[in-house]
């Protein structure tokens, strides 16, 4: 496979995954906040700020009164804003375009339909009453895309590259959500009954990661900070966990480079190293200093992405 095209496919995977996480974050936060148990979590300003924080664009002016329609438009449909859902999908399609000969017609057609759905979505409807419809549709479309990727592509290097993009992005986005919700949980502590560890925000976080039901099934208790983080970071059986994503990346890099030779400069080595760091960790070690953990894991994920770039995309 051409190095340039591999790079495009890698980023196609990343943008598809990113658009889904942003969409779900908007959806879950907006709707679960409507009837949240405490005032802070219900506050519109609080929710809008959380959304901006999650896409990496926090509002610095604490006094500014954010307009709901503006924030939703910016993150959802603003074509001039690079982190918006519409931009992510545009980038995904552009990357797919240049690799069109390598991916299946079915996958390309699905991406193309997705793109047309998003660019034709009326702005006025979206900001007034289309948020649920739009974001659910985006999440469903990404599911379809992942289905086409798994079900219509040859499971060779092409597949491995896309999957690596998806999983590195998933780990990144889950970490970003944890970061945003951690921040929200700190901010929303307002009384004896709602301490940090039992914050309502942990439930929202699990829902953002579509992992609430499975988490309840696994722990059979109301989510706390510890159990939520354990589930979303360390539990390899949770399909959205950082650990699970790293395992996937590890598996796919081996498809690209099956060489078993010791090579400490390889991507496989770096991924294995990061993965083994979290494989046998206690959640209590992370809980002590969540902030540093988040910084560390984000840095490791950037390092992995850079390494992939260096080893495979940059002849």
């Amino acid at each position: 496979m051409l190095a340039r095209v591999a790079n495009n496919l890698f980023w196609m995977g990343r943008y598809i995954e990113r658009s889904e996480h942003v969409a779900r974050y908007l959806n879950v936060n907006y709707f679960s906040s409507l009837d949240a148990p405490n005032l802070k979590s219900q506050d519109r300003q609080f929710v809008l700020r959380s959304m901006l924080f999650m896409v990496g664009d926090p509002e610095k002016d604490a006094k500014k009164n954010l307009k709901e329609e503006d924030v939703l438009y910016k993150i959802g449909l603003d074509p001039t804003y690079g982190a918006s859902i519409i931009s992510n999908i545009k980038f995904a399609r552009e990357n797919a375009n240049s690799a069109r000969d390598l991916i299946s017609t079915e996958l390309y057609e699905a991406i193309n339909k997705f793109y047309h759905f998003v660019i034709n979505y009326p702005k006025e409807i979206f900001v007034k009453n289309g948020l649920h419809d739009f974001t659910t549709h985006v999440a469903e479309m990404t599911d379809i895309l992942r289905g086409k990727i798994r079900g219509t592509l040859l499971h060779d290097a092409t597949y491995a590259v896309i999957s690596m993009g998806i999983n590195i992005e998933r780990a990144t986005q889950i970490t970003r959500m944890i970061n945003a919700k951690y921040n929200d949980a700190l901010l929303s502590q307002d009384g004896e009954n709602d301490r940090f560890s039992k914050s309502f925000e942990w439930t929202t976080l699990l829902k953002c990661a579509e992992s609430y039901d499975m988490m309840r099934r696994f722990y059979k208790k109301t989510p706390t900070s510890i159990s939520t983080l354990e589930f979303l970071i360390l539990n390899p059986n949770c399909p959205r966990s950082v650990m699970n994503s790293l395992n996937q990346v590890n598996q796919h890099v081996k498809m690209l480079n099956p060489e078993k030779r010791y090579n400490k400069d390889s991507t496989a080595f770096l991924i294995g190293r990061v993965r083994s760091e979290y494989e046998f960790k206690y959640i209590e070690e992370i809980d002590k200093d969540i902030k540093s953990f988040i910084e560390n894991i984000l840095r490791s994920l950037v390092d992995i992405s850079d390494k992939v770039d260096e080893e495979f995309f940059n002849y």
């Binding site: 496979m1 051409l2 190095a3 340039r4 095209v5 591999a6 000969d101 590259v161 995309f313």
Partner: peptide, 23 residues
């Protein structure tokens, strides 16, 4: 493969494409 000019290079009068596994 569908290539663009920048995916190819010439060395000693042979043409190569830049792949994820090298030339």
């Amino acid at each position: 493969e569908l290539v663009e000019g920048r995916d190819l290079f010439v060395e000693n009068d042979f043409v190569y494409m830049k792949t994820i596994k090298g030339p």
